[in-house]
Design a protein around this nucleic acid. Structure first.
Lengths: 373, 373
DNA sequence: GACTTTCATGCAACCGGTTGCATGTCAAGT
DNA sequence: ACTTGACATGCAACCGGTTGCATGAAAGTC
């Protein structure tokens, strides 16, 4: 843990390194800052927060510890006067039940874990946020884990979390079905965008929205469309490609696939030549970032959008911030996060696993990158 | 917790509601799924994972519990043979030390909290990710909290976290100095982008980068520049405006401020008329999203960038995805997250508060939205 | 061979709550 | 007045580890 020292740009305060103040550490009654305020703000010792315990409250209120416990957890078991007396004593002392101790004796610690492949991917933050809010509503806290798209890291995180969460949400897990099943045998699990029988899961069906996209383009008179595909091992990519092919063949529209091999924006941009070479007049991209790349590439080549070419993204992570504003397929990642947590908490409460397959439909959001040809 | 039911789009599995399998819950030796596999995947009971305890290992290895404990925490105290025997027994039984119990007796649970105002703001995900990675390196887990820019929510979260984390990182806190000081008295705290004496803090000095932006524009021949300002109560906004004014006056460049009152993209777009009305030939925007809005607004008005007008963003959250690619000021939010956690863990280990003011300099990243006039 | 010293291990208290059961009190029932 | 039950509260065990101290055996010293 010396990275601080070697990456400092500027230490405004020259005072570094622990300086032990006069008082002994053990004596302190409370977490606090001590040390003489001689110069600026000297380094100071941390005194551990010796929290008020249930026994102290019990003594103060003249009752047994169990009564204090009950006053907080099941006040209906006690006479109103007793509860009040205890509460008054607790308040006076600043008592807060110790979460860890409670967790140990009850076996419930009120935490759930959420593991995502890449926090920085704009798809996830709304999901995380919604999950957090949902958990909060039930007084649960969220452990967040980031796997950097690495299955090994994911496995490791699951293991580390397992001991301190009651359940886990795995979003767009990169683990094999077997590993996921194994973990599901250890603790309650809910999946997002992984479809494994017997494990509760929330699926965002981008197929529906993508089909609408094709219909929309067909209606505008486009007869040949390109699908700019995403990562080949992605569940969503598979789903989208299938849906597009089906819709196109239904509508008698020609479809061609151009791969955007690498990560999103740049590969979209690089794919533009290939896209134009097909002679298509419109494209649907794997996701919004790819679409944004395509948009930039088209602008470079002076192809006007939507005048000369129509473009549709997917996941709607950009809002309407591109120019022209990108037509896209809604992503519902927020709902996915919320529902997954809600499902998980539900499982925890009922102590039952339900084989749930919760599907969220998506739809087309028409903006300004599509027009009649 | 009934939101699931009322927002269902589609329940693929019709079997809903807990069905209790034959076996009694208490009997189960392990967390598992039971119930007859009659039809699809019927609902199944969760059996609590009755973990292997230290006593079982002790019995199996023929030693006292304390020896098992030591085998895991201070193996040097035991003879190598004993350690091996214990480890073998532990492995055979699949023993994993109970995190909660350990936390209770040691007072250390190996968690830190991270609270941000808005996960969905692209500024934060890299910060969160870096914090998470840094914590992971020391086997710490991260609690993530989202305040939705609401000080009350922030207060509440701090309180909830306080019981289960050893320390807390507050990023871009919206709390008053007093509240922050109060919390800092309760548990180790590190701030990001809040400058409060006596509390360890990591500050991203966007002033330096913004000054470079002004110099860059001046060098390109721009004599009048607009600053498109952000939220008036933002520490960063204040810092940036001040830096721009100073740099401009140094260089003899005229500066004018146009407020972008509301949230970023749209307000940037709406500010375009006012910006052009000033007669300036270049602008620096509070952040990249605002700049993106301005970019879109300029495109609408057929003002070519950078031909007719130069534009610089701030925070560099867009990468190079706009067209033309946006010149911006680096943000270093990743470093901020990493350093803040590192600082916090350092404090926890040394049990000392250091009055650290860690400043991260920023710099200009020149791309394609700036040109000579 | 008696006397330290060293070292591995066990004992038992402790962390701070929760909870099943026993006890005591008081009012209702007959 | 005596039984019965309901109810409020206390006792003590328990959750699953950690840790200061005691103990006893082996090794070292003279």
């Amino acid at each position: 843990m010396q990275p601080v020292a070697c990456q400092v740009d500027e230490w405004q305060s020259g005072i570094v390194g622990a300086r032990i103040a006069g008082a002994s550490i053990d004596e302190a009654a409370d977490f606090m800052v001590s040390g003489t305020k001689n110069r600026e703000f000297p380094d100071t010792m941390i005194k551990r927060a010796k929290g008020v315990t249930i026994s102290q409250v019990a003594d103060a209120a003249g009752v047994a510890r169990s009564s204090v416990s009950r006053a907080f957890t099941r006040p209906d078991m006690l006479s109103p006067e007793t509860v009040e007396r205890i509460m008054k004593a607790a308040e006076a002392l600043g008592y807060v039940p110790n979460h860890t101790a409670r967790a140990l004796s009850t076996g419930r610690h009120g935490n759930v874990g959420l593991i995502v492949p890449d926090i920085a991917n704009p798809f996830f933050p709304p999901l995380i946020q919604a999950a957090q809010i949902e958990a909060d509503r039930s007084d649960f806290c969220i452990f967040l884990g980031n796997t950097e798209e690495n299955p090994k890291q994911e496995d490791k995180l699951v293991g580390r979390f397992a001991g301190q969460v009651e359940g886990l949400v795995l979003a767009s897990s990169r683990l094999s079905d077997e590993r996921i099943r194994a973990h599901a045998g250890q603790l309650p699990l809910v999946l997002i965008n992984r479809d494994i029988d017997g494990i509760p899961r929330v699926l965002i069906d981008s197929g529906s929205g993508v089909s609408q996209a094709v219909e929309h383009l067909a209606k505008l008179g486009h007869r040949k469309i390109v699908y700019v595909s995403g990562p080949s091992n992605s569940w969503s990519n598979k789903q989208r490609r299938t849906a597009i092919r089906a819709a196109a063949s239904n509508l008698g529209v020609a479809i061609e696939t151009v791969p955007a091999v690498l990560a999103s924006y740049n590969s979209g941009r690089n794919a533009v030549s290939a896209i134009l070479a097909t002679g298509a007049t419109a494209a649907v991209a794997f996701d919004d970032l790819t679409a944004q790349g395509v948009l930039a590439g088209l602008a470079e080549k002076k192809v006007s959008v939507p005048g000369d070419f129509s473009l549709i993204g997917c996941d709607d992570v950009l809002g309407a911030v591109t120019y022209p504003a990108l037509t896209s397929v809604s992503n519902r990642s927020m709902e996915a996060g919320r529902v997954a947590v809600s499902l998980l908490l539900d499982m925890l409460q009922s102590r039952a696993i339900r084989d749930v397959r919760y599907v969220l439909e998506t739809h087309l959001v028409v903006r300004n990158t599509t027009a009649a040809r």
